[in-house]
Amino acid sequence: MEKTLNNRAWWLVAPVFFVVAFSAVVPLMTVVNYSVQDTFGNNQFFWNGLGWFGELLDPSTDLGGRFFAALWRNLLFSAIILAIEVPLGILVALSMPRDGWKVAATLVLMALPLLIPWNVVGTIWQVFARTDIGLLGWVASALGLDYNYTGNALHAWITIVVMDVWHWTSLVALLCYAGLKSIPDAYYQAARIDGASRWAIFTTIQLPKMKRVLLIAVLLRFMDSFMIYTEPFVLTGGGPGNATTFLSIDLVKLALGQFDLGKAAAMSLVYNLIVLAVCWVFYTVMTHAGSGRAETEIAQ
C-alpha cells in the first residue's frame, strides 16, 4: 500500500499547543518577566534588571542567605532520605515473598502509604507526634525522652525524615521488587550449583539486575524530596524557626507570604534550573546506562 507523506496532521496538535502555551509557557514567561522587576503592589512594576539574581546568589545578603540556607537544608534532606530509603527499600524487596497468596497481600500493604495524599500524611504525623494526644509523642515522653518536634530542630528533622521514610520507602521497595521479579530462575540455579553465597548472589545477580529500577527510584525520590512542600508544611510549617524550611516552603513564604514577586520569581527560576539540570543528568544516565556496557561487551 502506498502511503503519502502528509504533514497536515500536525495541525491536530494545535489545540494541545495552545493549551500548553496558555497554561505553561506564558506563565513561565511571566515568571521571567517578574524576576527582572520589582513591585510595591497595586500592579505597579519597576525595572530592576538582574538585581534580584545578584542578591539571590550572594549569600551575604538577606535573600541570598535564606536561599542558600534552604538549598543546603533541602540537599541534606534529600541525601538523608536517599541514604535511608534506597538500602531499606532493597532490603524490604529482598524479603518480600515471591509466590503464593502472600504476594498480593504484601503488595497491597506496601502500596497503602503511597495512596495517602501528602497533606493527610502530614496531618497523620502531626497528630501522631504530639506528646499529649499522639501515640508516638506520648510513648516517647512516657519513655522519658524529652521529645518535642515543634520546639526542637533536631526532633523536627527526625520526625520529617521518619515520615518521609514511612511514606516513600514502599515506592523504592516496589520498584526493586519488580526488578527482582524479572530475574529468571536459571540465574539462581546457576548460582546454587556454583555454591555462591547469599552476598555473592546479591552483588553479582540481584544488584546488577536492579540497576535500572534503582536509578529510576533514586531519580524519583530525589526529585520528590527536592521539591517537597506539603508534608513538612503541614507537620512543622517550616519550623521551629527556619529549621525545616525547604526550598518550596521558602519560595511560597516569599511569593505569597511577603508578596515579593521579583525575588520569588528569581528564586523559582534558579530552583527550576537546578531541577532541570539534575533531571537532565539523571535522564541521560538512565537512558544510556545499559548501552555503554553493551557496546564493550560486543567489542569483547
Binding site: 534588571g49 538582574l50 545578584g54 550572594d58 534550573l273 532541570l276 539540570a277
Partner: peptide, 27 residues
C-alpha cells in the same frame, strides 16, 4: 542546543554570583 542553553543559564548564574559587584548586573 539543550546542553548549550542549560549550560549558558548556569554560566550566567555563575557570572552573577562571582563577578565583582559592579559587573554583576551586566551580562
Amino acid at each position: 542546543l539543550f546542553i548549550t542553553l542549560l549550560g549558558s543559564a548556569f554560566i550566567c548564574l555563575g557570572w552573577m554570583a562571582f563577578a565583582s559587584a559592579d559587573l554583576r548586573g551586566d551580562l
